[in-house]
Nucleic acid binder design. Structure first.
Lengths: 194, 194, 194, 194
DNA sequence: CATGAATGAGTATTCATTCAT
DNA sequence: AATGAATGAATACTCATTCAT
């Protein structure tokens, strides 16, 4: 039985969401260890008690974030991966990867790497599946070499992409993540073409 | 005018060095924000007062850290980068990069990325100069394309290598950093050959 | 004028009782300062608001607790205190005292002593009246000395009994509360016989 | 090698002792859960930081207390237990037991029972040995019956005494712990005389 | 009657930093 | 040079209580 939707539950949902968003923004700006709960609460216009009413700790806030890249890809990117050429789709894939990265600020990227990374990886599963699918199709169409398994190729591509994102986070957003991404993944992917 | 070297100044230097090494080790293991001055002082067998006598703050300690990979390369690797072929030298370079990474454990690598990392990738680092030099030579000898500047190539190569190392740290040392490194950097570098 | 008993008031009474019982149980298990209102409310399956509707504070709940041993005595023990000899009845009394103690576990006993304990030993308690009555009868029948008032004797007996129970709680239920109770109260009571 | 005793170490010791004493007093007055560290620190005229410099937590403070009854008996009471008659010594013993109790306030007694009781018992070991010795002597001299072992007698006596102290703590120091102690332990001990 | 979102004062604990010795 | 006692601001987290719905 679902909870009834009343003006109260609606407002509560909004509060919850508001806290999440303010928290993510602040963490993104300053890093998780440099933002206090009080700061987040104040930014969201609620009391610390309210923060804890919705989230048992600061870390929980981060849990609300990472699915976003999955969601982002699921809702906005996948539909654009319909080019004939595999290379084209791969290019699109990593373009949006870079885009998503930039949307969230370099601090948050760094924090994603910091916090227990296991879940970051697991939450990226969807992403991996999409990329794997692209590679598979490329191999089936004869565009991509079968020298390495699709899974291996996917891994190597993501590793390189992570490098780009990390570099961008390390120089505090001062590098051009789009061109770097394109250069690195583009060149690497070329090595997998027949 | 140099200070006279007395037994006293000698001991002081040793104390200073000792603090540095313990601090670096602890920071590497636990991350800079998770190590207190007291902890470092205790590990070094001195008092907190002594710590502050030598270092104005914890961050100053970090300045002492990045040499290490540079030292490693300076003392043990550079002499091996004498192959005719640039590609060969690049391969050697990243082989030792992976080796150095593995030597230090994934925990330390992860923390290296976490802690204020700007300087890790800073232009001035010896490591980068070595790689830059290799690329330059490759371009001069006509082995490497001049489509991109040597500096750009160096950056892209290091970005990819960082991706490999990061992945290795993220899976807690369970991937094969040697083969991954070779695959990624090897394939990427091929794209720079004429 | 009594309130009409409707299904609504009935349910309210039940809710009230339910909160009391869950509260008592939890307080008994964990101690009053270690149980939150929310915890009690959750255990009782109601909201915190409902808790406050029925009880102005946590402490009010405690008022509901001490009946229990009184209830136990009223419902199950008193009817057995019908021996001719006062000493016999006293023995029975403390046997059931020990029995009740053991039934509730040492944790609860310890917490009973901890939490605001004044009322536990309050003059008004049914238990004490029963014991007082027994002593009175003993004095009237000439079995018990009148050197001390019945009330004094009752107090001293209970004090000793509390010592036994406390000891049992302190050794985490590892002593034999029955034999200890009998030894201590039996011997002490002998001193009041003529 | 002992630490050198300088004016600094001396002052430090005093600070430590001062914190302990203020803490014990406050806990005794208000109960451990009702006293904050800040309160203790303020009472001792130091900062919270200083409190933590000396004691890792509030509980540690309690650890500093209970040996006191042992010390108290060792230093001030034992020398007075030299009467010919065992009964007389027992009386003296429990007189000082009551005295020590009263010296510390009922709150602290209650707290002793609350906090992990294991150490209370263990810290009373000395006390038990002294009492055991008294009983043994009484049995040897034929004053005390050998119907129960000396150890058993000691246990029962202490159990009763605990009851008195507990009662006193429960009524917040409003009973007369001296007369109660004498009545209860005196009468009980009589039952062990031949 | 009942709910549960919201509050905010209160508390334990940490830690970089100072400074008299 | 070296010490370590002392500081106090900062911070995560708890919980009794209120009140609009």
């Amino acid at each position: 039985m679902n909870k009834k939707v009343t003006s109260r539950t609606l407002k509560a949902l909004e509060t919850r969401k508001n806290i999440l968003e303010c928290g993510i923004r602040l963490i993104g700006e300053k890093g998780i260890d440099k933002v206090s709960i009080e700061e987040i609460a104040k930014a969201a216009g609620v009391s610390v008690g309210t923060f804890y009413y919705y989230y048992p700790s600061k870390k929980e806030l981060l849990q609300g974030m990472p699915w976003r890249i999955d969601k982002y890809f699921e809702q906005e990117v996948v539909e654009k991966l319909t080019a004939e050429s595999c290379a084209e789709n791969i290019k699109t894939f990593f373009y949006y990867y870079a885009r998503h990265t930039k949307m969230h600020g370099w601090q948050i990227i760094k924090n994603l790497f910091i916090t227990d990374t296991a879940f970051v990886i697991s939450d990226k599963r969807y992403l991996q599946l999409v990329l794997l699918d692209l590679v598979n199709k490329g191999q089936n169409s004869g565009e991509v070499s079968c020298g390495l398994s699709a899974k291996q190729i996917m891994r190597l591509m993501l590793i390189a992409a992570h490098g780009v994102v990390l570099d961008w986070a390390m120089v505090r957003g001062k590098s051009n993540v789009f061109t770097d991404m394109q250069e690195v993944t583009g060149r690497l992917f070329n090595s997998f073409l027949v």
